[in-house]
Design a protein around this nucleic acid. Structure first.
Length: 208
DNA sequence: GTGTCGATAATCT
DNA sequence: GATTATCGACACG
């Protein structure tokens, strides 16, 4: 039995064009390590969305918006940006594109791989395995990601949250579906951009 | 399978 | 005071 833990993806992986990173994250593994118990809970990233910073009307940093909440997005690439929304949900992103560009990729869905029993405990309403992590707030609940993980370095294997490199090359374009981002209807022309990416025919995406 | 709608509170105006 | 990068319950078929 091989229990070798894959290396985290390096900082330079994130210090690129945000759409490129959003596609390249598909197939990589989001790993949550509980430092108290040593428990590992993880899944393969199967759905992402790109948020293009100061020019993107759907992004939290649109028009150079800069408040305490979005501090992490203004920092270096390769950190977790966690926010709380709709009065009850957390969502997790990874920051991209250095050089003062506050951009990020929202992680929208995972295919569960490690610590699945813990996910079932935390996601009481789930009926099927595909309900565990098929949405941005579902996966943060399943992995136990809350605001205290905002800002953690996802390139460090000692972090409570990091992204492990499972594949060297991004999936080829014909295996990736592109579509409009979800829940950003207010963003006018930016709502139409095809910045949502998911693995075709994967059962664990949030929709279609 | 689809569509509509209420929950619920941090954040920003 | 308004908004929200969502989810789950319910209705319908």
């Amino acid at each position: 039995m091989n229990l070798e833990i894959p290396e985290p993806l390096p900082r330079k992986f994130y210090d690129r064009d945000t759409v490129t990173v959003a596609k390249a994250l598909l197939g990589q593994k989001l790993v949550r390590v509980d430092h108290g118990t040593g428990m590992v809970i993880a899944g393969i990233i199967v759905e992402t969305e790109a948020y293009l910073g100061v020019i993107d009307k759907a992004a939290h940093t649109y028009n150079h918006h800069k408040t305490e909440r979005v501090r992490t997005m203004w920092g270096e690439p390769g950190h977790a940006y966690v926010y709380f929304t709709y009065g009850m949900h957390h969502c997790v992103n990874v920051t991209t594109h250095g050089h003062g560009r506050p951009e990020a990729v929202l992680i929208r869905a995972l295919e569960p791989t490690d610590g699945v029993e813990v996910m079932w405990d935390r996601r009481e309403k789930a009926k099927k395995e595909r309900d565990l992590c098929s949405g941005p707030a579902k996966l943060t609940k399943a992995l136990g990601i809350t605001l205290d993980l905002d800002g953690v370095d996802v390139t460090c294997p000692d972090s409570q949250l990091y992204v492990a490199g499972m594949r060297k090359r991004a999936y080829s374009g014909d295996l990736i579906a592109s579509s409009e981002r979800i829940g950003v209807g207010y963003a006018e022309e930016w709502a139409k951009k095809l910045f949502r990416f998911h693995l075709k025919q994967n059962l664990h995406v949030s929709k279609g």
